[in-house]
Design a protein around this nucleic acid. Structure first.
Lengths: 194, 194
DNA sequence: ATTTCTCTACCTACTAGTAGGAAGATAAAT
DNA sequence: ATTTATCTTCCTACTAGTAGGTAGAGAAAT
């Protein structure tokens, strides 16, 4: 794990934190320029247009997420604990303000005015996250850990919405603890009586 | 119900629809100007600054919401149906795209870079909405309509997060039906067994 | 007659994006 | 080994357009 970060990665990193804070229209090349000490034009060398920058950024985010979720499924045996780990990840992100909001949740709220490239990336993220959650729920049901009222796919949508809604509430109230207070009962509800 | 809309109300109407579509940074005085056929400078006469415009807008939204929720509580006797009416309201808004997202949910996602006036208004809305939901849940519990796992206040937070998360999912997937598919089971879950 | 509204005309700061070149590293050709 | 050419990265300087906001004149309503 080297800490050498290429310029383009630094650009993506700061752009990501700016998007999480203020969305697509909430940041500019000048903001990135000021943050990493490089001229605006140099950013255009790495990412010709803003739409392309954000598209690459969301692509990277999706890949990181995919990798992270995959390693959760491989590293943790119990579906209940896989779900718990996913939620805990976001809980710490929100608590220490490292990534206090999902990039795609942020962009999804601006869906109507996003470049089509970015919009379809965001849809893709929502789709694969819902898919991961559904597969965890299905595995847990087959093993008797979970007892679901609805189909795994539908429960996954409900859970995903709760997580995103909880992020929003935590942000609105400025209270990181609210995230887990909302999400934890939603997970507990899925657990089969022992 | 008169259809005479003052200029300042027309400004607020179009600004609201623009905010719902793209957030605080997603619209400009020029956009409003083009939409209602008035010069930019004339908008500044009614609302000197953008922060003030949005602050008034959110104030009006809060008041409309307060009035609407109050009339639901007064016009409908059953708490379960009050809740249903609230959800149905949003379902139709999303379906016919008249107000396909809560103004305050939109702004909450941008909380970190909102003018303080606006931010506190948004917090206020979340607080009073959560309060309304909690009081409906409490009334329903006392009358035996609802059977809650947690305190009414906590269940209200969970429900509010589900509603906002469901709005986001519906928008992300471009599927209005997803809203009710997510929210309906969350309400059903609160119902006491007959 | 005064207040309310809308206008033209303008300002400064900032937006994304471009043109063209300089510095340095790398690779190829001599 | 040294020249030559190429590639990458970053720079200064610039463009056209848009941002929020202002000053002041002219209507319109009270």
């Amino acid at each position: 794990m080297k800490s050498i970060a290429s310029t383009s990665e630094k650009i993506l990193d700061i752009a990501q934190s700016l998007i999480v804070a203020g969305g697509y229209n909430g940041f500019s090349y000048a903001d990135i320029s000021a943050a990493i000490g490089i001229r605006k034009a140099s950013i255009h060398h790495h990412f010709p247009t803003k739409a392309e920058l954000v598209s690459v950024l969301v692509g990277r985010y999706r890949q990181q997420t995919e990798t992270g979720l995959k390693s959760l499924r491989e590293g943790i045996s119990s579906p209940a604990e896989q779900l718990q780990a996913y939620v805990s990840y976001w809980h710490s992100c929100i608590r220490d303000a490292s990534l206090p909001f999902c990039v795609c949740a942020m962009l999804a709220s601006e869906m109507q005015m996003l470049p089509e490239d970015v919009a379809s990336q965001v849809r893709g993220h929502f789709h694969s996250l819902a898919g991961w959650l559904a597969s965890v729920l299905r595995a847990g049901t087959e093993n008797g850990f979970f007892q679901l009222d609805k189909q795994p796919e539908e429960e996954a949508q409900i859970l995903m919405a709760s997580v995103h809604g909880a992020m929003l509430s935590a942000r609105a109230f400025g209270d990181p603890g609210l995230f887990i207070a909302i999400v934890a009962p939603q997970i507990a509800r899925l657990q089969a009586p022992d």
